[in-house]
Each structure stands twice: as C-alpha cells, then as structure tokens.
Simulated scan of single mutants.
Amino acid sequence: MPKTIPAALQAHYDTGHICVAPAVLIQRADGQLRGFTLRSKPLVMDLSPWDGGNWNLSAETAFEFEAAGGMEAFVIESTAGFEVDETMLVTLNNGDLFTEEDILAKRWAGARFRIFLYRWDVEAPTIEDDVETLKVGTLGNLQPSSTTVKAELHCLKRLLQLPVGIVTQPNCRVRVFSQGPGQCNKDPTGFVHSLTVTGVTDKRVFTCSGAGQAADYFGYGFVAFDTGLNAGLSMQVSTFVAGVFSLVAPMIFNIQVGDTLTATAGCRGRRDEDCIAKFDNIENLQAEPDFPSRDQVVSGVSP
C-alpha cells in the first residue's frame, strides 16, 4: 500500500524549507501511553484520529509528547520487499521510560509503537494536515546496559516471518483452559483456587498451608499475585508438593506472608495422567501420542 502524505504537508515539503521533527508514540498492553519528541520542546496533539485497531486513543485529545533529549530512533536496515526492517529505539537508562522491574516483568512485551514526523512551525499540528507516519509495529527485545536501553522495533512485515501450522508431538501443544477451535476448551471452574501465602523461603519457593491438593496438582500451572509487592504479576509453577510451590523463575519482588494469589491447576500435556485422569478432556487432546516416530517408520517390521 503506497504511503499517503497529507496535501498540506506535501505542499510544505515542496517549498524546500522543511520544518519537521520526529516523534515516537508507545502504548503498552495494559494501556499505559508514552510519547516523546526528539525536539527540545514538548508537543501537544489530538491523537483520537489514530484510535482503533489495537490502539486505545479515543480520549487522548490533547496528549503531550515529552521532549526527550536522550532518546533517538534510527534505522539499521529498511527494505522494500518482505524482509523485516531492523529499527532500534535508544534511550538513557535513567528509569524515565524503561525500568528494570518493568523489563523483567515483561510489561513492555507486545507494546505498540508509531514513529512519525510532524511540523513544528505550526502552532497546533494535526494528524490530518501535519503528520507523516514513518513506521508502526510492536516492541521486541529490550537490551539494558549501564547507560542506555535499546529496544527493537518490529514492523508489521515481521508477521509474515512467523511460522504457520503445527508440528506433531506426543504431548498436548495447547495451554490448559484455552478456548477456541483447536484449543483445550476445558471449563476452568473448579480448577482455580484463591490462596494465601503462609511461609516464604525465597522469591521462588513459598508455602500456602491452605493448599491441600495432591502433589503436582499445580505443576505447570500458574500463580497470579492479587496483593503484595508482586500484585498483577504471574509466574508458572515448576513443582507443587504438600502446599509448597516452587516457581520456574524468581518473582521480581519479595514474596511476603499474607500475600494473596490465584493458583490455576497445571497440565503437563500427558494423555493418560492429565487429559484423561485429571481433566476428563480426552476429546480435546491436541497431540498425537500414537504417531510413529521417525525411527519406527524407517526400521521396518521385525520378522
């Protein structure tokens, strides 16, 4: 699709006296919105024309972009075909935008971005007349260092590089309780439990004395903290025995006695132990446990 430049902005370009500056708009999955202009003065603009799709901007009629002297966005490679453009956003590692806690908690995962040029020589730039969008997409990996944080900016062409289809495997390939065609489709009622932390070993291991379920009941499941320093964060469970939870990775913040959480039963994708005995959901097993292996196929039939 060819890029459309507003007629008023194109007329400004044609004069040869170009007064434009770049800006970046980022919206996280939780709705938090941040905007920065690489000019020395803030920018105030009505963003509601960009509302829709994955963007929630209907109420942002006078959004202020911060003047970010320590930020820059640069293109390493830009292609005209289907190869993915490589763009980086670089900012000072001072906690103004990316904090270590947010990075570790993956709060920026899948955040949307828009890089654009706007006219700074008009009093109130508008999207309809004074803005040219350069690139839209999602944030990729964040690479913090002692002085800067580098964020990969993935354009929409990256979606064309994602694999399509499924691979046969003996264990179920979908997450338990996922809904939709080709999913688990098990009703989670009865498998979600509200618990309270009664003992803490470290950021990975803690005890909920009220959890009297069988060993490994929560294994491969998830705990989501409702209160405490980790409120709003979740983590996968590695093992569960006699009320003791061991997580696959440490929580970002300290777990404390009295923290409340929601624990969801886990599924290791096994046909007999999980799909049949634990969840009674064999009709939705998304696996091929009886599919012959490559060795079995090529070995032939023994006499």
Rank of each mutant, 00 (worst) to 15 (best):
E77G: 15
F98A: 03
D259G: 05
S78V: 12
D14L: 09
D187L: 05
V223I: 15
W55Q: 03
D46E: 01
R119L: 04
E123K: 11
L97T: 11
G35S: 07
D129Q: 11
H193I: 11
N284Q: 11
F63S: 03
G95W: 00
I103F: 03
E86C: 08
V174H: 06
E64N: 08
S302H: 12
F206R: 00
F82V: 14
T147E: 12
Q169L: 08
P250T: 12
A11G: 10
R294W: 15
L233S: 06
C155I: 09
E77F: 09
S302F: 15
T262Y: 00
I282G: 15
R271K: 10
D202W: 00
F253P: 00
D216N: 12
G300E: 01
I18V: 14
A21M: 08
P188N: 07
Q183F: 03
H154M: 10
A214E: 13
Q32A: 12
I103L: 10
F98E: 00
D30P: 02
A124L: 09
P289E: 03
T148N: 08
T87M: 13
N185C: 09
R294M: 15
G182I: 02
T239C: 06
E64Y: 01
V44M: 06
F177A: 07
D96W: 09
R39L: 05
N254R: 08
K150M: 13
L160R: 07
S48H: 02
K3H: 14
S78K: 12
V149C: 02
F240H: 13
F253E: 09
V84R: 11
G199D: 09
L38M: 09
E283A: 15
D14V: 06
P181K: 05
S234L: 02
A21H: 01
G165R: 02
T147G: 12
E132H: 10
N93Y: 06
S48E: 01
G16I: 00
L9A: 09
V257L: 01
Y13N: 06
D226T: 14
S146Q: 13
E60Q: 14
G190M: 01
G35H: 03
S234N: 07
C184T: 02
A11F: 02
E83S: 13
T201A: 10
V301D: 10
P144Q: 01
R271A: 12
L162N: 06
Q32D: 08
R112L: 12
D272A: 14
F218P: 00
L134V: 13
T207Q: 05
L9E: 03
A265K: 02
G212Y: 01
D216C: 03
Q213E: 10
I103E: 04
P292I: 08
C208L: 02
V122H: 02
F63L: 05
T196Q: 05
A59P: 03
A59L: 06
I115K: 04
H12Y: 02
A231L: 01
T91G: 07
W120K: 07
V301K: 09
S209Q: 07
C19Y: 11
N171T: 14
S293K: 11
L47A: 05
V301T: 14
Q143M: 12
C275G: 05
I5M: 06
P49L: 07
S299F: 11
M235R: 04
N141W: 04
V167K: 13
G210D: 04
K278C: 08
T126G: 09
F113M: 06
S58L: 07
I127C: 04
L195V: 01
S209E: 10
S194N: 07
N141Y: 08
G232Q: 00
